[in-house]
């Protein structure tokens, strides 16, 4: 690891001032992703601004929904009684991610900001447009079992690795960000971006901005399932994952939320499938049709071709499980 400076600002304002002053600086909180990337030489910030002790850990209900501080630990959110009862999808997704130890370190903000786990991104001797723009995409014609089937470009077929973000996308969460001039809100679905011609940019957060909280609106999605399919039973990134949440009244889906992980550069919302299911009976047959709609336009790159079929099976299974039919 290169030598770097480390500061621990006493408050949010000091932190925002510090980052505004120094473009090469990065915030660090849990460190589970950033320290890893620094060890591998993938990123080499000259300065770390440790925000771990800022008072942004609170989880509280407000009239706008559930506010979760950006520094709340993944484990604390997963264990939270309100989250477990009213936002179970989020709790399930968090438990599906990483390990108990990592969840005790990783923060909500850091989870949102985590980088792809693409092996070509991680190996600094390999080409990767995300790490080194213009160097090419190693995965495109390389080993791409873990890679995207939706929304990729010739420049990058990496996927966003988070489970939590898939649930937050489905739950229509909003991200609250601040800089030293003020505050703004970003709808979750607009936070992460597709690679296009600029895979080096993961998201729409601007320089000098800090995620301070997420807000999840209240919902009536009493049936939910986060299904994660991976190469071993636990402690592995998703091949595909599905966040499915349903509000069912009189046997019909009144509200439905569907999103996938492990399939795109961002948490992948299945809006067409949602539209199809809305108002229809919550039956396995309809779920299967929704799954077929969801995978329209999916594209494999060789090793990951199987993900298309797997995605369809996983969507059906997750909906079945959510609706209590599996």
């Amino acid at each position: 690891m290169i030598p770097f400076e480390y500061i621990r600002p006493s408050g949010q304002k000091a932190a925002l001032d510090a980052i505004a002053k120094d473009a090469s600086a990065q915030f660090i909180a849990g460190g589970t992703n950033l320290v890893d990337l620094m060890k591998k030489g993938v990123v080499s910030p000259q300065k770390l601004i440790d925000i771990g002790k800022l008072p942004l850990k609170e989880i509280k209900e407000a009239n706008t929904g559930l506010h979760i501080g950006a520094l709340a630990l993944n484990s604390d959110v997963a264990e939270n009684e309100i989250v477990k009862t009213k936002y179970s999808l989020l709790s399930q997704a968090l438990y599906a991610g990483a390990s108990a130890q990592l969840r005790n370190m990783a923060t909500v903000g850091g989870n949102i900001m985590q980088r792809t786990r693409c092996t070509y991104f991680y190996d600094t001797t390999m080409p990767c447009n995300k790490r080194k723009p213009g160097s090419g995409c190693g995965a495109l014609k390389g080993y791409n079992r873990m890679h995207a089937i939706f929304g990729a470009s010739e420049n990058c077929i990496a996927v966003h690795p988070s489970d939590m973000c898939v649930a937050l996308t489905a739950l229509n969460a909003t991200i609250l960000v601040s800089n030293n001039k003020g505050e703004r809100k970003i709808p979750f679905g607009e936070f992460h971006r597709l690679p296009g011609d600029h895979p080096e940019t993961d998201n729409t957060l601007q320089k000098g901005e800090l995620i301070t909280a997420i807000i999840i609106p209240e919902n009536n999605l009493q049936h939910s399932c986060y299904l994660k399919i991976r190469d071993r039973a636990s402690y592995a990134f998703a091949l595909v994952s599905v966040a499915a949440a349903l509000e069912i009244a009189d046997g019909k889906t009144k509200d439905v939320r569907l999103a996938m992980g492990g399939v795109a550069h961002k948490p992948w919302r299945l809006t067409d499938a949602e539209k199809f299911l809305k108002g229809k009976p919550a039956t396995e047959n309809n779920f299967q049709q929704a799954a077929q709609i969801a995978i329209k336009g999916a594209k494999g790159y060789g090793n990951n071709n199987f993900k298309i079929k797997l995605a369809s099976a996983a969507i059906t299974e997750a909906l079945n499980k959510a609706a209590g039919k599996a």
Partner: peptide, 27 residues
């Protein structure tokens, strides 16, 4: 790299992977 758990310790009573925690962050 936080992929095996051999480095697990308790920090303020919580289990963590000490390999991904900078010592200075544990002030």
């Amino acid at each position: 790299h936080g992929q095996c758990g051999a480095c697990t310790v308790h920090a303020d009573g919580k289990r963590i992977n000490s390999c991904l925690s900078l010592a200075i962050m544990n002030e």
